[in-house]
């Protein structure tokens, strides 16, 4: 990505778009370093037992389904990979362990609440926005249903209510924003988890905790906190005993996803410089061509061209 961006800038610099290199400045819109230290959740997949109580809690909290808790004990759902849906903000998947069949790895998935979210950068009406506390939230009232956010999310999180004809919504984990707004409030899934698997807290503290855990048990943990740098960093962080790609995590580089498009957008359209220049140039051509028109009226394009 970084390489792409540099190439693009070089390309502009080369003047291929009409000598506008002066208008080029790096994207100022999103710079992860300045982003406030919000809250997050550390998911320690080595602790997860696949009880799916987090799914139950989330579904109940957001009125997604009303299956009773016993139904979540059904382990047959693990046979095939399930993924996030309009009525499932979080799902747990089981990944078989080639070394020890008795110890598969369970992974809970939901929106990662990126520090520089691609979905929010893509949304043309600002319906998706990152809040101070780290939650990336959705305002259905603004949304026009273009679904560009779904194209943009590198983790394939947002889902859509295609079956709703009148008021379809983009659906994804809300980070239980209304619960956590209260003093001591925890996301529903975190509160319900019977294991030591989900830890809610300041992202910076969670990162410290994660590295502490890795240092404390280097045999068990991979030396990688997923989400520390992926896509510029995410609020939800993961620890695992096996390489993340084996657990179907996306292999995402450290550059925030929106950087390339925002750089293009802001370098070309900064103060409307490039469009205005083009406007002026065309105006000049028009005057000149009009002047020469009398003399060349009879030249054909064939002749001019060859």
């Amino acid at each position: 990505m970084d390489l792409n961006r540099r190439r693009f800038l070089q390309f502009l610099g080369a003047g291929a778009v009409g000598g506008i290199s002066t208008a080029v400045t790096p994207a100022e819109a999103s710079s992860v370093e300045n982003i406030s230290d919000g809250y997050g959740v550390l998911v320690d997949t080595t602790e997860c037992i696949g009880c799916r109580k987090c799914e139950f809690a989330c579904n109940r909290e957001h009125h997604l389904t009303d299956l009773p808790l016993e139904r979540y004990e059904d382990t047959s759902v693990f046979e095939t990979e399930r993924w996030l849906q309009a009525n499932a903000y979080t799902v747990v998947n089981r990944h078989p362990n080639p070394e020890n069949a008795a110890k598969p790895t369970f992974v809970k998935s939901q929106c990662l609440h990126c520090l520089d979210p691609a979905c929010a950068s893509a949304c043309l009406v600002g319906a998706l926005q990152r809040q101070e506390n780290g939650a990336v939230t959705y305002d259905a009232w603004k949304c026009m249903g273009c679904r560009y956010c779904m194209v943009a999310c590198p983790f394939q999180v947002p889902a859509y209510e295609y079956g709703n004809a009148l008021t379809p919504q983009v659906r994804k984990c809300t980070f239980c924003a209304s619960r956590t707004a209260q003093e001591g409030g925890l996301p529903a899934c975190v509160e319900m988890c019977p294991q030591n698997c989900l830890t809610y807290g300041k992202r910076s503290e969670l990162l410290a905790l994660a590295h502490e855990k890795i240092a404390g048990n280097p045999e068990l943990y991979q030396d990688h906190v997923y989400g520390e740098s992926e896509a510029g960093g995410t609020s939800w962080l993961y620890l695992a005993a096996r390489p993340f790609t084996e657990l179907k995590f996306q292999d995402i580089g450290p550059e925030p996803i929106p950087h390339l498009t925002e750089t293009i957008q802001h370098s070309i359209f900064k103060f409307g410089a490039l469009p205005l220049m083009l406007y002026g140039m065309l105006g000049a051509v028009m005057r000149i061509a009009k002047g020469g028109h009398g003399r060349h009226a009879e030249t054909t394009a064939e002749e001019e061209v060859s």
Binding site: A29, C123, L124, V125, G126, C143, M144, G145, P258, T261
Partner: peptide
Amino acid sequence: NIWHPAWPTMWQGNSVL
């Protein structure tokens, strides 16, 4: 809501769309 992008309070200049 097709008119929303034209409404100044909803402008989102980072979006290519």
